[in-house]
Design a protein around this nucleic acid. Sequence first.
DNA 1: GCATCCACTTACCATATGGTAAAAACGAAA
DNA 2: TTTCGTTTTTACCATATGGTAAGTGGATGC
Lengths: 189, 189
Amino acid sequence: MPNRLITFLQQHRFLTTNEQALITTAFEPRNYKEGDQLFKAGHICRELFFICDGVIRITATNQKGAELTHFFLKEDSFTTILYSFNNETVADESIQAACDADVLAISKSKLQVLYGQITGFKELIDQITQQKLMDKIKIRNAYLGEDSETRYHLFMRQQPDIVRRVPLKDIAGYLGITPQSLSRIRKKH
Amino acid sequence: MPNRLITFLQQHRFLTTNEQALITTAFEPRNYKEGDQLFKAGHICRELFFICDGVIRITATNQKGAELTHFFLKEDSFTTILYSFNNETVADESIQAACDADVLAISKSKLQVLYGQITGFKELIDQITQQKLMDKIKIRNAYLGEDSETRYHLFMRQQPDIVRRVPLKDIAGYLGITPQSLSRIRKKH
DNA sequence: GCATCCACTTACCATATGGTAAAAACGAAA
DNA sequence: TTTCGTTTTTACCATATGGTAAGTGGATGC
């Protein structure tokens, strides 16, 4: 499983055998079942995850108490609750497995050790993080000002592989509609 | 006007008199009237702006051709179309003055010269940029899964100063509703 | 002064979406 | 297999929002 991470990182930057070993040792492999929580809102998120297989969703509870999905992430993505991880503040979002998932986890302290051991590693992670933040904003912006049906079609275009792997109710929550409405939209073909 | 930028940067990091002079010279002061375009979608955004006074909005056109506001930014904020600026790709968003505004502008090439002249300046800008990206996501996430009225109340809470300074139709576009609906919501008190 | 333009409000109607409920489909476990 | 629980679908009704249109108000210019 750690190979997936090494392969991913190598796409951005060359890693020596020694660096690869350091990274592999620092990350802890974990398996999650659909619905499992990687991190629960209300705490400080002190771990960074790399998704090797499966789909992860960032969830939050809205004012009415309904659980909704802020974002879907799939394999070859790092994920954490960034503001909580960086600033050590309480997070209002959770991280949950949207389907069975294989993940690598690293604590903030171990990550900082890695930063010290591998020259430019912090810069690499920062760069990947910034790119991901931009992608998130871009994907979400595309939904602004569109009606439910258009949002669903955009979703299928933007993240076609997600729709096949996660329950429909999660997609509904992500698009800001009820499962009933989504079911109605899908019936139209 | 450049003083505002220096003061802002000093909050993050000490700047020598020489560094201050370099920065001040590199940025070009500009004045915009409400409705003026700082940057037009369809091109590559090669400038970074720092808002000294006023409110700026990031706009885009949705599938139906309606203009909507992706984000509001006010004084003491850097703004550009980041993915376009970084990757030199065509932007689908514009930058517009939501009210009369004083802005400092710098080209990408001049910025890179500054990066070379001031040690750690790139890291400083990157850090500010990343923080801003997180803030944007956080603000936008708060609206997810809320109805129009709740979104309006959230907006007044999250960006109380914006609501007083920009036309109502822009706020409606930002919240994803028509000016009529927003007018209706406000009537309720 | 008056006219013009634009933003904002108000009103009316059509419609998409939410809420509640129940049925159907699917999967997991016994 | 059957049973149970969950997800998805379908249906019905209530309602919030959009669309169209008209009226109001304020700012600007003649």
